[in-house]
Write a protein that binds this DNA or RNA. Structure first.
Lengths: 214, 214
DNA sequence: ATTTTTTCTCGTACATGTACGATACACTGT
DNA sequence: ACAGTGTATCGTACATGTACGAGAAAAAAT
């Protein structure tokens, strides 16, 4: 397909959007999370304040774009921390996930702690696992554990439960920084280990069914 | 001590504050979470918009007061669901906690999902367990399980881990209502049962130490 | 080439949270 | 009783997110 006028325009728009994301990222780095305002962002790239809305539906959309960037970084970090032992590889996902959340609390909050009723323009819930490379890595490593006989049951159910435990741990650490959890890394590791210990001894049915011992 | 002028004034102020909290609660019920604005709240009780700041430091403070109300309700519900079996009593805490979170997502978000760096005027982190009757109930029922030999280890550590699991589960359900978790109640029960299953087979060290198998 | 339609850009306006400071009232010490 | 001191109330002002729609520019149609 030759580059029609249509695609050229779209491409340019995408480029300008990337430029805005980069500027927003720099703004957050320089002035902190609340330093990112639409007016400042527009001034930074030489636009009128309202022109930003040509590229983003609203401020949430900007934050979401920032978060997507951050998640690619996370996925890259996860890939760097692999292992021959599937359980260790799975633990690495949790460790990196935690390190990311604790190191980028604002991005983490944006993605995982603000209601996702209004998805940014044509995203489906599947994007939370298909479009999010980190979640994809989690599921695939769970599948590896199941294939190796280290875990048994439905991989998606196992991954979701691990996600719930990891998310609970990290979001508590972010939200209540003063609470005596002890060393954050140690708390994360403990939660992760305890969960994997249970999961490895029980068969995990898919999510729609009723729990095992009820 | 006789009712001095000082105490009478304070009492009146507290009453007016309660009136504002009640009005705020009604506003949230009627118009939803974002329907609560300071101007609307002031108009509702016949104040000038800025007069609200005589009773609350900022909007967070209003939300926090709302949440405290909600937590007394939660604690009351927990007390209503007791049992002779300490494990069942503990499960009831989790069940009611979940029902509260899923039934009052706005209050839940306010208390457990917004950063608590700025405590409302002289609160310490201990208020999160001392002042919160629901957290107090959780810890005491964990202690009952330990005393009965159903669980072993540090009660505070066990309670914190249960909190992390419960919070992760509920906050995910609230934040991603479209994600296929299956039946919310079943998912909560499954998470709770899995966690208790592990905890009952392992000794739980206090939180400052390193995890068991590292 | 001219007209029509679509799309892009952005100026204005409004509701919001809240900082600052003025005004009026209540209380206190003399 | 009266001046002084604090405190409750609230008017004004500013930065913010964003809805609405006007104007300009580009594309398409004739």
């Amino acid at each position: 397909m030759p580059p029609s006028v249509q695609t050229r325009r779209e491409k340019q728009k995408a480029e300008q959007r990337s430029e805005l994301v980069a500027a927003a990222h720099k703004l957050v780095q320089e002035e902190g999370y609340e330093g990112l305002t639409i007016r400042k962002l527009a001034k930074r790239v030489g636009y009128a304040p309202m022109s930003v809305y040509s590229y983003f539906a609203d401020k949430q959309d900007i934050l979401f774009a920032l978060a997507e960037d951050a998640f690619e970084t996370l996925a890259r970090r996860i890939e760097e921390h692999s292992s021959d032992d599937p359980i260790e590889a799975l633990q690495a996902v949790m460790t990196e996930y935690a390190a990311f959340g604790l190191g980028n609390p604002n991005e983490y909050r944006t993605v995982f702690m603000t209601e996702k009723t209004k998805l940014p323009e044509g995203r489906s819930y599947e994007d939370m696992e298909e479009g999010n490379p980190a979640m994809k890595a989690l599921i695939s490593r769970v599948e590896a554990c199941v294939a190796a006989g280290k875990l048994q049951g439905d991989p998606r159910a196992i991954a979701t439960m691990l996600w719930a435990v990891g998310h609970g741990t990290i979001s508590l650490l972010i939200t209540f920084p003063f609470y005596p959890f002890g060393d954050p890394q140690a708390f994360v590791k403990r939660m992760c280990d305890f969960t994997l210990a249970t999961l490895s001894t029980q068969n995990v049915p898919p999510l729609t069914e009723t729990p095992v011992n009820c």
